[in-house]
Amino acid sequence: MPAYTLKRTFVAFLILIVVSGLTFSLSHLSADPALTIGGEQASEEDIQAIRKLYGFDRPVHVQYFDWLGRALSGDFGESYHYKQRVFDMVSERIGRTMLLGTLAILFALVVSIPLGTLAAMWPNSIVDRVALFIAVLGQALPTFWFALMMIIVFGVWWRWLPISGHTQWANYVMPTIALGYYATPALMRLTRAGMIEVLASDYIRTARAKGLSPGSVLFKHALRNAIIPVVALAAVWFGFMLGGSIVIETIFNLKGIGWLSYDALLRSDLPVVQAIVLVFASFYVVLTLLADLLNAYLDPRISVR
């Protein structure tokens, strides 16, 4: 187990380096930051001066290693637009994004695992069909549309919930549902498929032949095994909830790093974009790593391989 963990951690670190290299080169190839910083009225001399000032005249790989060296010590540079330290801008907002992402994945799991389990216990029953309906709806409705509908119904018509901001818990209700519902279909269908397979397995027959209570058969013996692939998928979705909250944060004006990345992209604020992409990538990498470790814990056969 320690060797396995160490190996996976090392691979995770390599992935982050590669991701940062890719985003750095792509963002520097896709736009000339000096033009953006200078603005429309900037003369050719101004642009040259800006290039020199920010070091854009150097080869991209030199700029990258310069950036990487600083980044490793926690210095992500300064925002071109806000003239603030990127580190401060991100750390000020990252908590909101993590709270939203965590709430969203919890919402998705709390909905999808019981619903998937019920659907698997009575396949093709009315319960299964209702679950399928909910899943298809979640799959088919675009997140932004669903979010806007919620704003109209709960925010504007009934005035139950605030439609924007991040200062009180009520601000998080609609974003959590909008974001979490997006992850629900996949998790629910996987839970259902896993449970159906496990419930038909020989060891469930053994558990029933031992006269165990229905609860023990279902939760101890079936769900534990059916949940293993769901854990892996949930981790990937959690990464998506954290990194994919750009649209939701923007719609609800919930100023997390998703909102910040949208803002930074509009302004070609490259240091901010670069840092946020790295943060999002770290979310994915760390969560995938955690999922693998959790899987190894849940399924004792994994770490042996």
Binding site: S201, D202, Y203, R205, T206, A207, R208, A209, K210, G211, L212, S213, K220, H221, R224, N225, L298, D299, P300, R301
Partner: peptide, 25 residues
């Protein structure tokens, strides 16, 4: 009531030893 008998007074051994035990416990 049947569940009380199963595993207690009547036990069963199955054909497939490779898959009849729960891999997680």
């Amino acid at each position: 009531e049947m569940a009380r008998l199963r595993g207690g007074s009547i036990s069963m051994i199955f054909q497939e030893p490779m898959t009849s035990l729960n891999p997680s416990y």
